[in-house]
Amino acid sequence: MAEWINVKDIADGAKFYAGAAIRIMPTPCGLEEGNFIPENGLVYLISDNASDKSYFNCVCLSAGEEGNVICRLERKGNYVLGSEIKRMFESELQEAFISKSIEIAVI
């Protein structure tokens, strides 16, 4: 199982690579505002962007949203900085968590 770290707690200079996972959970405020995020959250995978090597894609792995790209993260070489993840995901409507890697089971 992945160990999730609140995005607020990561250092701006922390490096995250393709394969890292981001879990988005709605806040009570987000649910009141009709946020699109379901109560059990959504999981996204940081993956390469084949058409633009300046960015990574954040691709949804959660059922019903799988394959959707929520955003593009600016790359610094072969990683993305914690400051970029914070910029894209910190919000009063959602809470974001990151894992350095995720286990994917193929059934």
Rank of each mutant, 00 (worst) to 15 (best):
L61F: 01
E90W: 04
I70R: 13
Y44H: 04
P28F: 12
I22L: 11
E33C: 11
W4I: 08
L45E: 09
T27W: 06
L81Q: 12
M1W: 06
I24M: 10
N6L: 10
A21G: 11
I37A: 03
W4Q: 00
F16L: 07
Y55K: 02
D48A: 13
K15W: 07
M88S: 08
E32P: 01
D9T: 04
G13I: 10
L61S: 03
R72D: 07
N35L: 02
L73Y: 01
I102V: 14
I5G: 00
S47M: 08
G67V: 06
V7D: 01
I70Q: 11
P26N: 09
C60Q: 02
E66H: 10
F56Y: 15
L31N: 03
P28L: 05
I46D: 00
S62T: 14
E74K: 15
F89M: 05
I70E: 14
S99G: 14
E33G: 02
D12N: 15
K76R: 11
D52T: 06
E95P: 00
N57D: 13
L42D: 06
A14V: 07
C29F: 13
M1C: 07
Y44Q: 03
K76W: 08
W4D: 04
S101M: 09
E84R: 01
E32L: 15
V59T: 14
V80C: 10
I104V: 15
G34T: 12
A21I: 00
R72N: 09
A21F: 04
L31D: 01
E84S: 14
C58F: 04
P38L: 04
I102K: 05
E32A: 15
V106P: 01
G67K: 02
S91C: 09
I102P: 12
A105V: 14
Q94W: 02
A63S: 14
A2V: 11
S62L: 06
W4H: 03
A21L: 06
I24L: 15
E39L: 06
G77T: 05
D52M: 09
A105D: 11
S101T: 11
D9I: 03
M25P: 00
A11C: 03
T27N: 09
A11G: 13
I22P: 04
D9K: 10
A96S: 15
N78S: 13
V43D: 08
S101L: 09
